[in-house]
């Protein structure tokens, strides 16, 4: 071991280059998956929390985190998963929301606790392409666990929404 213990800030800066494998415009830090970084004499441990229980991208993110640190000379990093507090889209900062919109994914609204049995979701989602508010929810599920599908009645474009949770 020749390298000194890296600082937390340096590790976080490297992690900010690790993108979500399905949405390559936002990083695992911006997504809120990275909860903490521990730099000690035993090496670096990155503490993460899963987005959805069954999200297949979580394993890819773990592997990408370890590979990115390794490429910057921080070998043998570990990833530890914690479940509390549960991940929420409220952790995604405004700058990352704009990146999502520019990539063609409507950013999440505020996550709030709806009544358990509510048939219709309140409110419409603004089209990320033309900005129109006249859109229709097609399905609350989409190409990945975290997205819903909508249709813009103004520009006739289907689009995805990063759903609030």
């Amino acid at each position: 071991m020749v390298s000194a213990t890296p600082t937390r800030e340096r590790v976080l800066a490297i992690l900010d280059t690790v993108k979500d494998p399905e949405i390559p415009v936002i990083s695992v830090v911006e997504l809120g998956v990275v909860r903490d970084v521990e730099c000690g004499p035993d090496g670096v441990t990155v503490v993460i929390t899963p987005t959805y229980s069954g999200c297949p991208a979580m394993k890819a993110m773990e592997d990408d985190i370890i590979a990115a640190l390794d490429a910057e000379g921080i070998g043998g990093a570990r990833v530890r998963t914690v479940f509390a507090p549960a991940w929420t889209t409220d952790w995604i900062p405004d700058g990352a929301r704009e990146k999502l919109r520019a990539w063609g994914i409507a950013p999440p609204g505020a996550a709030h606790d709806d009544p358990p049995v509510q048939l219709r979701r309140a409110g419409r989602v603004r089209c990320p392409f033309c900005g129109a508010g006249d859109t229709t929810l097609r399905s609350e599920f989409g190409s990945t666990a975290c997205k819903a599908t909508h249709y813009c009645n103004s520009c006739a474009q289907p689009f995805e929404e990063f759903k609030a949770i």
Binding site: S53, T88, D114, P116, V117, F141, K163
Partner: peptide, 13 residues
Amino acid sequence: ARAVKESRYHVRH
């Protein structure tokens, strides 16, 4: 706590 959020979508759907 994680699963509560997912289940809300399942119930609604």
